[in-house]
């Protein structure tokens, strides 16, 4: 599997706040990659760095095997995104919004293509209505059409279910699965709800206070029979070495600084 996104040692500092701190992760082709964390954990900052909206203080990002900041235009042509709320030009029609973003993505949009995309999100009837007359759900669907209009390889969705009603959330979930399964897109999706990530992602990363807590396959991380135990010692490195000698060694997680063990629930010491 080829790495679509390769992030290494990414940091972003706003004055004295470490929004993202030494973050590394890899997104493989075809992944639906969940980005889980509380509000303010650094999800949005990370995603904005992936989209060149925020400049990292340190670290590297490469997408499609190329450095993001030196091959920015080339890479962004293959990326579609919804960043938080799907805000669009309120005074323009759905069709005009879609047309503008298609052009910005380097497309020469044909009417049939644009209408097709609107049909896909169920907005073909409202193509000529101004966005300011749209409900939140309709805006979200138009946002998806905008993100997909140029048929990108990588789709980045930052909190895509925010502000949606239960039906909207279900529709979004189905769409993401459809894009992944039927069209083979690579998708990064962030959320603060584990339940959401659990339903759609195959791999995920949990981020807290800008730092990676854990990364791995969702099925493994959420295996109901296993628990993750984190140890705090005076010397993590020395303890790690010692543990390797014992039966516990097999349960050690390949983590850089943290000392974590994955073990059966009944084995967790009281």
């Amino acid at each position: 599997m080829a790495a679509i996104i390769q992030v290494s040692n990414l940091s972003k500092q706003f004055k004295d706040i470490h929004a993202v701190d030494d973050l590394s992760f890899t997104v493989e082709k075809g992944d639906v990659y969940g980005f889980l964390g509380q509000n303010g954990a650094g999800k949005s900052t990370s995603i904005r760095m992936l989209l060149t909206l925020i400049k990292p203080t340190a670290g590297q990002i490469s997408i499609f095997g190329k450095d993001l900041f030196t091959h920015r235009r080339e890479i962004l042509k293959q990326v579609g995104a919804i960043i938080e709320k799907p805000d669009l030009y309120k005074y323009l029609s759905a069709y005009d919004n879609l047309s503008i973003f298609a052009k910005l993505s380097g497309l020469v949009p044909k009417r049939t293509l644009l209408m097709d995309r609107l049909k896909m999100v169920g907005l073909e009837e409202r193509a000529n209505s101004k966005v300011k007359t749209f409900s939140q759900g309709m805006k979200q669907r138009l946002g998806i059409a905008v993100a997909l209009v140029h048929d990108p390889q990588l789709i980045i969705l930052d909190e895509p279910t925010n502000g949606l009603d239960p039906q909207g959330i279900a529709d979004m979930r189905n769409l993401i699965l459809q894009l992944s399964r039927d069209m083979g897109k690579t998708i990064v999706v962030s959320s603060h709800l584990l339940s959401e990530i659990e339903l759609i992602a195959n791999r995920m990363l949990i981020i807290h206070k800008g730092r990676k807590i854990i990364e791995g396959k969702v099925a493994e991380l959420l295996d109901p029979s296993k628990s993750l135990v984190q140890l705090e010692t005076n010397n993590n490195t020395a303890t790690r070495e010692k543990l390797k000698q014992t039966a516990w060694g097999a349960m050690l997680q390949p983590d850089e600084q943290l000392l974590r063990l994955r073990m059966n629930k009944e084995d967790v010491p009281g």
């Binding site: 904005r48 989209l51 235009r73 309120k90």
Partner: peptide, 12 residues
């Protein structure tokens, strides 16, 4: 309006 982030994430 919130469109700046979309605009700046485009290949321009």
């Amino acid at each position: 309006m919130g469109t700046l982030r979309l605009l700046a994430a485009k290949p321009v």
